[in-house]
Amino acid sequence: MRMAELVMGLVMGVFSLYLMWKSAELPIGWIAGEGPGGGAWPFWLAVGMLMSCIAIVIRWAKRITPESRSEAPFMDSRTIEMFALNTGALVGMVGLFHIIGAYGAIPAFLIFYLRFMGRHSWRLTGIFAVATPVFMFLFFEIALQKTLPKGFTEPLFLPIFDFFY
């Protein structure tokens, strides 16, 4: 935990410097007749971030915070496994949104999560894998007219839209 506290402070410090540099692409000083330049607000906020990171590292060195004193691991092997499985499944689902669309990706994610991670029955898995996208479609696409991504499955939905409109 102690090492993670330092690494996070340093990474965020570097990110603050990047933000300062990026903000300075626009003027950060006073422009006559216009007031503060467009980059001033984010630039000085990034300075504030950097100062906070410096304070975090100083407090780490002085072992002031509980995290800077803790010798416990940041993540144990079981946590790493759960973290990787969940984030992997999420990344997979969002990636599939681009290819097979929401109505293919959501059932795929639910089948993986409910059947293989949650070890629920095929019956329950099937009910959720079918009912969730049907509800999503009726609520978002038909009731609220908010279109979700459909990828290459787009033409399959045209007859359904013809039916409703």
Partner: peptide, 26 residues
């Protein structure tokens, strides 16, 4: 184990709906 994937799905769809942009979901 049922609630978690449903919430994840709602999060993803909820992140997409305001701007209809996959960039926001990532």
């Amino acid at each position: 184990t049922i609630l978690a994937p449903i919430i994840f799905v709602l999060c993803i769809v909820g992140g997409f709906v305001p701007t209809l942009d996959m960039h926001d979901v990532w």
